[in-house]
């Protein structure tokens, strides 16, 4: 058996353990909830509707949920992409110019910790549309962690990689795209990961403020009517979407950072 086969087998076994184990934990939690609601009625039926209520509600509002999903993605994806692109670009440019970094770092340190949620009312007042103000809030929530981690990644680059690149006469775009960007990728992905999680939070918070559709709006809207079956259904749907997006992110990360796993 070669090392590759062995690793493959190990990975398959780990995945099996993860899938089976997680399924058992999930199933037990759902069963416990069913026991407390539908079977024994131990919990308040208005605040904690049983699965017999939640699941039909979810099925009935599937088109509405899906529309909300599309609406949320139309807000999330462009803001996220812009935040990552701007964060990585600024991080690379500033990180590669020590003097610029010296000048801008105090500014970054001052602006970075300002919670974007605090800016929501102001953004809504200043910007012409709801979509734009929410997009700016999500953009900022992604931009700062990505910028800071990219800067960190450029600073932490192994100095001998840079020496090597200089000896190989690599300059300009080649230096950036063949050496600096891939070398900083582990830190960049760490920043994108936290930016991604933060963006879900900001998305739903922003949608609760003044949206007319979207997943956060759905939950907020039915909470106002005390339809907690739909509220819980919306939360479950939202979690499923988040899990899906995080899985996609993990896949991409594993593919791009294959070289860090085995060193």
């Amino acid at each position: 058996m070669t090392r590759k086969e062995f690793e493959l087998r190990q990975a398959r076994r780990d995945r099996r353990i993860a899938v089976i184990g997680a399924s058992i934990v999930f199933a037990s939690l759902i069963a416990l909830y069913a026991v407390l609601t539908d079977l024994t009625h131990a919990l308040d039926p208005v605040l904690f509707p049983g699965l017999g209520v939640i699941l039909p509600e979810m099925a009935a509002s599937a088109p509405e949920l899906f529309k909300g999903f599309l609406y949320s993605m139309r807000l999330l994806i462009p803001s996220l992409a812009a935040g990552i692109l701007a964060g990585v670009t600024c991080g690379l440019v500033v990180g590669m110019h020590p003097k610029v970094k010296l000048v801008l770092m105090p500014l970054f340190r001052a602006l970075n910790p300002v919670p974007p949620t605090m800016l929501i009312p102001y953004a809504i007042a200043v910007l012409p549309s709801f979509w734009l103000s929410s997009a700016v809030i999500i953009f900022l929530g992604v931009f700062w962690p990505v910028l800071m981690s990219t800067l960190h990644g450029v600073v932490m680059l192994e100095p001998r990689w840079i020496d090597n690149a200089r000896c190989l006469q690599l300059t300009g775009r080649k230096l950036v795209f063949k050496v600096i960007l891939p070398g900083a990728m582990p830190q960049i992905f760490a920043g994108v990961g936290s930016g991604l999680i933060f963006s879900f939070i900001l998305l739903t918070v922003a949608e609760m403020f003044g949206a007319k559709a979207g997943m956060g709006f759905y939950v907020q809207y039915y909470a106002d009517f005390a339809e907690y079956g739909k509220v819980l259904g919306g939360i479950i749907f939202l979690s499923a979407v988040v899990i899906l997006l995080m899985t996609v992110f993990d896949r991409i990360q594993r593919r791009v950072l294959y070289w860090t796993n085995k060193r």
Binding site: R160, W161, D163, K178, G183, T260, R263
Partner: peptide, 9 residues
């Protein structure tokens, strides 16, 4: 160099 001569990516 002693190490880090090749780019690992």
């Amino acid at each position: 160099f002693q190490d880090y001569s090749l780019f690992p990516w």
